[in-house]
Amino acid sequence: MPSYTIRVNNAEKTVSVDADTPLLWVLRDELGLTGTKYACGKGLCGSCTVQYKGNAIRSCTLPISSALEANITTIEGLSPDQNHPVQQAWMELDVPQCGYCQSGQLISAATLLSKNNNPTEDEINAAMSGNICRCGTYTRIRKAIQLASSKLDK
């Protein structure tokens, strides 16, 4: 099997996997970063979202051989101790229910705010439209993004 060196949460990692192995499974099975979740395998639900080249991407459909050019930020690397504004806002509003989709939601939200620190409600809805929550946390997520945005403004 070929060997690949990727940069995850600012640390270099070398793994031996097939070239078509999705980044998701490298993170989960090879590197033990299980915060990134499998839910659809087809880029339909956003549970596997990570940040790559400043964008929120679906790691379940990105082969490792295409993820070599930049640092990959997973939920574990979003902040050292849950102090990213989106994480703080999520905790303040007690957002999660089952929690399974939340890593992807948080990464999408953090990515949105990194590009637009004062998004409108429509911009939030559009940026988050790729992330399904099955439990019904959408309204709290929307409020949490607005709260995080207000924290960033200050």
């Binding site: 994480q87 007690d94 929690g99």
Partner: peptide
């Protein structure tokens, strides 16, 4: 809650 928002829960 802190574990959920940092990917630290083991499902």
């Amino acid at each position: 809650l802190d574990k959920v928002v940092s990917g630290g829960v083991e499902y």
